[in-house]
Design a protein around this nucleic acid. Sequence first.
DNA 1: AATGATAATGATAATCATTTTCATTTGTGC
DNA 2: GCACAAATGAAAATGATTATCATTATCATT
Lengths: 129, 129
Amino acid sequence: MAYCWERWLSRSNPRVLLTLERAGGFASAQEVYHLMQREGQSIGLTTVYRALQSLVKEKIVDIMRREDGEAIYRLCGDTHHHHIVCKSCGDTVEIEGGVVEKWAKSLAAEHGYRDVGHSAEIFGLCPKC
Amino acid sequence: MAYCWERWLSRSNPRVLLTLERAGGFASAQEVYHLMQREGQSIGLTTVYRALQSLVKEKIVDIMRREDGEAIYRLCGDTHHHHIVCKSCGDTVEIEGGVVEKWAKSLAAEHGYRDVGHSAEIFGLCPKC
DNA sequence: AATGATAATGATAATCATTTTCATTTGTGC
DNA sequence: GCACAAATGAAAATGATTATCATTATCATT
């Protein structure tokens, strides 16, 4: 345990990870980068990209796509959840997605698909906008 | 009928649409463009993009994202539906999404969101891969 | 047919996220 | 200290997508 942890702290992956967490667990590489800049952390954009890629590979972070195709990342805890995203201000609400989980699982099985994941997001205008 | 049809044929939208159909109803803008070039059709890349955008706006085609973020388009029938997409070969199966529709609608209402849409896709490895 | 308003087209340049390249720095074991 | 591998990041390259803008086709009206 201690072993992994210390090795981690010596690299930039954890700084990126912590920033992602602080960002609400939902941000693009560019956003993570700018956040770290603003906070005074010294890091290069390339490194942010590399850290995120590696975190994705290790399945510590999930990757999704915004409507315009930009990649966004978020922590993937042991529970997986969904969001309602405001089209205008980008505000997001975390929501219960148990129904969708079951839906995805049963349909995937029905069609013989293995190694299955899913994405489900709701887009709209939040009460403020 | 004849009226609409003829007007359509005079523009490039239908040529793009037909090409998309011929491509198996699943292709990126660039692919549609190259296909049309190879077939000897004279069209500009810009026009292909515009045609696809307009077709999306008219809900005649669906837009999705490949894993690398490139936009891919496909014909969509009159009913809104969801897909299971194979991560490896890109094969897709259209599926029933009534459950998800209800889920999205009720949750959006619950959080006061208006003008709501949603996306839900399942990714996995198809039986062949 | 000629005219002109309007929309459609497409070559080119601009944008912008993401990747590559490569030189430099840092960490680690000897 | 010393060498060697991994990590870093600035800068350039890539590639999809979008914006510009001059040209062309469409179509109703003279």
